[in-house]
């Protein structure tokens, strides 16, 4: 997207674009993402670890996956020209936490408050 005009405050490049790191970063990212995906599939079916730890492991792997995407594909860094991206990420994380946390809390409280159903009204699940 071009922007014609002069002056020091006009940046025409997307964040990360000026670094020209080539495909190297993307290859590392792809490798890490593939590894994390493969490990997730492995963990989901394995009997090698304590079973209740599997969901926790999957959550950890999923969050690591997000981190890989953000760093290697979306080029989120903490550099000074990256303030907008970091702010956007922070806003996004806050909204996701509000939405997920709020939903879990609301639905859990609703379930807790549901009147116990008599067996005659039992619904097929």
């Amino acid at each position: 997207m071009s922007y014609t005009g002069e002056g020091p405050e006009l940046h025409d490049t997307a964040p990360g674009e000026e670094e020209h790191e080539g495909v190297g970063g993307y290859v590392i990212g792809l490798g890490l993402a593939t590894l994390l995906t493969a490990v997730s599939f492995f963990v989901a079916g394995t009997t090698l670890v304590w079973q209740p730890s599997i969901p926790v492991a999957l959550v950890v792997l999923a969050i690591a996956q997000m981190g890989v995407h953000l760093v290697f594909f979306l080029h989120i860094t903490t550099g000074p020209d990256n303030t907008n991206n970091v702010m956007a990420l922070a806003f996004g994380v806050l909204i996701v936490l509000l939405v997920l946390g709020g939903s879990l809390w609301i639905m859990a409280r609703m379930n807790a408050n549901m009147a116990p159903m008599p067996p005659t009204m039992h619904m097929p699940r």
Binding site: I95, L98, V99, I106, R109, M110, N113, M114
Partner: peptide
């Protein structure tokens, strides 16, 4: 902008999420 994401349940107070929610 921020608070607007913290109020959505007031559209369904009657759902039965309870007094604390």
């Amino acid at each position: 902008c921020l608070l607007s994401f913290m109020v959505w349940l007031h559209h369904f107070f009657t759902m039965g999420a309870g007094a604390d929610v």
